[in-house]
Amino acid sequence: MEMIKNRARIEMSSMSENIGFARIAAATFAAQLNFTLAEIEEIKVAVSEAVSNCIIHGYENRPDGTIVLNMTIEDGKLKIEVEDFGVGIEDIEAAMQPSFTTSEERMGLGLVFINSFMNEMEIISTPGEGTLVRMVKIPEKSE
């Protein structure tokens, strides 16, 4: 619908302070499209979960890693990529399963939430090199 094409790329430290930062940055960028507040909320949760995963799993809570949040608006769609250069995921299919987690006290629902809140989702990961989560959200009103 919109003819607008816009992009923003954020590189940030793997510090938990940046989860909120990434969430607001994504929400503000997304607001250029015709999303409802509820949809914006879903985008915020998806980005929070993806960035938390980079920090907790990818960098095992080391604060000196880099996380990239890449956002593009094109053809009325919001594309978001969250990338780290940390440990990577051995078995992506297993990681996607509800309640699968590799850390004891966690719920294993982050990737499930992302998958259910976004219209498209894809994970690309190489053990020892890092993980990229790619997601697409389309305003419901435009469909």
């Binding site: 607001a31 015709n34 409802t36 507040l37 509820a38 009103k141």
Partner: peptide, 9 residues
């Protein structure tokens, strides 16, 4: 009967 979008708000 539906939510407004941010732009409508």
């Amino acid at each position: 009967g539906r939510e407004p979008t941010v732009q409508e708000i």
